[in-house]
Design a protein around this nucleic acid. Structure first.
Lengths: 249, 249
DNA sequence: CTGATTTCTGCGTTTTTTTGCAGGAATTTA
DNA sequence: TAAATTCCTGCAAAAAAACGCAGAAATCAG
């Protein structure tokens, strides 16, 4: 096998699978590891692949996983936020949890919107405060430094006193079997209370979190009135949820 | 699994769920905890994640910060803050209002101090949240956007439920005749409630505000247990207050 | 066509990287 | 305060990489 031929094969494999192991390559092509290593070395110098200990990675691998953009999946979250904002009308009482998607929602609210936002999430409240026309109601109680949200029985009691028109939940994990799940017990209690206190429950979830599970259950899919992702409604990932009776936007 | 691959997976999980536990990661990827720890270490050195005891946090989630620009007469306020901090002991319940002097107090708290701070001021709460050992209780209610503090009957009711060891009031104006005065009716209601709910009332006031008056009365000088300014106790400006029976530090 | 030169490949050795483990220190939690 | 986790340090084994070298193959010059 010619050297050029071999390198073309390697490059093909890298682009196909996003990674190659030098060990498997050398058995596939039946050459010594040194040869593979030298090939990888050359391809790496030409910028065709990224050489790592044990093999090589495609360049797209790095683009996908080590996004140089500091804010992770901001665009997706922006898309979700805009869909969600379409559900808010003037005069509404809106209950929101915390999380980066909610922050994006808060930042994207149109300036003319006049509504009342209720939350215990400090980062979210900070964003709502900057808005010219929104009334902000803060749920008080002990602050969980971890999640930057007020948690505890007082907070839950306060939420129970509210009857909100709509509730937006930032989602940590959603799955067909287990519904909405999360990893912080106290936050879960809050979210449960929020669901009970709202006429309409909307889950905001980037597609990556779909079909993932966390240890603690928030609610079943049947309690969600709407699931918002950055995907078009026709995306196959959403099909099982539509089939399960979940409304999707 | 390649090392880079593993780190990409970890980073992905961190960005997705805002936090990861090393314990769960090592069962997921089936490597030793040491390996996970070393990965976390490296990712943290590259600034990709924030390493904490037991796992790691995403960086984007922790970017809650408040614009500190234009801190007015910072040095004097620092002096006042340090005097005030001398009054706080471990285990105390501390009630604070808002204002830049209180912020300075919050920033200057010694890291070992273990106490519970109660406040409705968003900027103050943000500072307390950064402290490793203090418990933060947030007073909830409607947020007044210009004073950045929760105001209203619910907030007052909550404060009434508390019996704090000490209360620090940022002062807007203090005068021999009129006592403590302010210019925001709702904030005054809150401060009154705070005074009633505290065993000891401490006013923090920079010298410039001494002998000035605002439209709405908070309380008389007789209700103050201590007045803290940046001046030495012997300063002639403070003499009339000492004569009137106000303790000064 | 032939010999010299260059390139390529594989082998053995040394060096580096990676990983897991044991212990003791540090931190967290009850 | 005591128990349980988690963290750190040094160490050792395994894997991979780097290096030098020599033989094989290809290229080139005369």
């Amino acid at each position: 096998m010619l050297k050029k031929e071999r390198q073309a094969y390697i490059l093909h494999q890298v682009n196909l699978h996003n990674k190659v192991l030098s060990s498997s390559l050398c058995t596939e092509i039946n050459v010594s590891e040194d040869t593979i290593r030298r090939d990888l070395q050359e391809l790496s110098e030409e910028g065709k692949v990224i050489k790592v200990h044990g093999g090589a990675l495609s360049h797209s691998f790095n683009q996908v996983y080590f996004s140089t953009n500091g804010v992770y999946s901001q665009n997706q979250k922006k898309t979700i936020a805009l869909k969600a904002i379409g559900l808010i009308n003037n005069g509404m009482f809106v209950l929101t949890s915390g999380g980066t998607t909610i922050i994006e929602l808060a930042r994207s609210l149109p300036p003319q919107l006049k509504a009342t936002f209720i939350s215990g999430s400090i980062p979210a409240i900070l964003e709502y405060m900057h808005h010219p026309n929104i009334e902000v109601i803060l749920i008080g109680d002990k602050i969980s430094k971890n999640s930057k949200i007020t948690v505890g029985s007082e907070a839950i009691a306060k939420i129970r006193q509210v009857k909100a028109d709509i509730c937006f939940l930032g989602t940590n994990a959603i799955d067909l079997m287990h519904g909405i799940t999360d990893n912080d017990w106290e936050v879960v209690q809050l979210k449960k209370a929020m669901i009970e206190s709202s006429k309409k429950v909307v889950c905001l979830s980037i597609a990556e979190k779909i079909n993932s599970v966390q240890p603690i259950k928030v609610c079943g899919l049947d309690e969600i009135d709407l699931l918002i992702t950055e995907l078009p409604v026709t995306d196959p990932v959403l099909k099982p949820y539509l089939d399960a009776g979940v409304k999707v936007a």
